[in-house]
Simulated scan of single mutants.
Amino acid sequence: MSDTAETANLMDAVYRHQRHFYDLTRKYYLLGRDLLIRDLAPPDNGVVLELGCGTGRNLIAAAKRYPTVQFYGLDISNHMLQTARTNIEKAGLEDRITLIQGDASDPDAINPLGISVFDRVFFSYTLSMMPIWREALAAGLTYLAPGGRIHIVDFGLQERLPGWFKSLLLKWLASFHVTPRADLKSELESLAENSGASCRYAPLYRGYAVAAEIRIDG
């Protein structure tokens, strides 16, 4: 079995049942997602890609906020995409949100969309779940149009939170195959330097989460 198929099976197993109540529970601890959507600020008539789109929650919120923009979502889990399609149809946004199944770390995964570059690419609490997250970031960078940006929000290192809270949180996250990326900042800085881009990285909520951005000048 390939690594992609193995990861897809794992994610389907994790979310087979969770997807039905995922959004109801995650709003309490996936903090900073709406800040990311606010900061996207894509150009009018632009195109935006979410890598690891899950239930479609972020795509729907962003499509409502930016009514002239086309949105695309990729996820490796077929179960999550089934839920996302249902949610998008309920929101009446099928004409502005397109979904595709694929591995975010594969730079060819978006080829079936027929779009080579995007104005914005974003990751929302997905890099901490991706086994080869560095490759996913690198792939996302190749999708950016001149002047484009990658936006990221994910779990931080809880550096300013009590030790007992950090210990419990990390143990709980591990049960869902989630690992905050201790070297996310250095990886982003390296990618930005190698591509002539700029990088922004900021802890949120005393380090509970982190917001980051890579910007390609254009």
Rank of each mutant, 00 (worst) to 15 (best):
M1W: 09
S2F: 11
D3Q: 15
D3M: 13
T4W: 04
E6V: 12
A13Y: 13
V14K: 06
H17C: 02
H20C: 01
F21D: 14
F21P: 02
T25L: 10
Y28K: 08
Y29S: 11
L30W: 05
L30M: 10
L31V: 11
L35N: 00
I37P: 07
D39I: 00
D39V: 02
P42D: 13
D44E: 14
D44W: 13
V47M: 07
V47W: 01
L49N: 02
E50Y: 10
E50I: 09
L51G: 03
L51C: 11
C53Q: 03
G56S: 14
L59M: 07
L59H: 04
I60G: 08
A61K: 15
Y66F: 11
V69R: 09
V69G: 15
Q70H: 12
Y72E: 00
Y72V: 01
Y72T: 03
L74G: 15
N78I: 09
N78E: 07
M80E: 04
L81V: 00
Q82T: 10
T83Q: 13
T83A: 14
T86Q: 11
N87F: 06
N87K: 15
K90R: 10
K90A: 12
A91S: 14
G92R: 05
E94C: 01
D95T: 12
D95W: 03
I97P: 03
T98Q: 08
G102W: 02
A104C: 06
S105H: 05
P107Q: 06
P107T: 11
D108E: 14
A109K: 00
A109V: 00
A109P: 01
I110P: 00
N111Q: 04
P112D: 08
L113Q: 11
G114C: 08
I115V: 07
S116E: 05
S116Y: 11
S124N: 12
S124H: 08
S124E: 02
Y125Q: 01
S128L: 05
P131T: 09
R134L: 01
R134K: 07
E135S: 15
A136Q: 02
Y143M: 09
Y143I: 02
A145K: 00
G148T: 02
G148A: 10
R149E: 14
I150W: 01
L157N: 15
L157Q: 14
G163Q: 04
F165G: 05
K166L: 06
S167A: 13
L170F: 15
L170R: 15
A174P: 10
S175A: 07
F176E: 03
F176K: 06
F176T: 11
H177W: 08
H177I: 08
V178M: 08
T179P: 00
R181N: 13
L184Y: 06
S186M: 07
E187H: 15
S190Y: 02
L191I: 14
A192T: 14
N194T: 12
N194H: 13
S195F: 10
G196M: 01
S198A: 04
Y201V: 00
A202Y: 05
P203H: 11
V210H: 06
V210Q: 01
A211E: 05
A212C: 12
E213A: 03
I214V: 14
I214H: 09
R215S: 03
D217C: 11
G218N: 07
G218K: 05
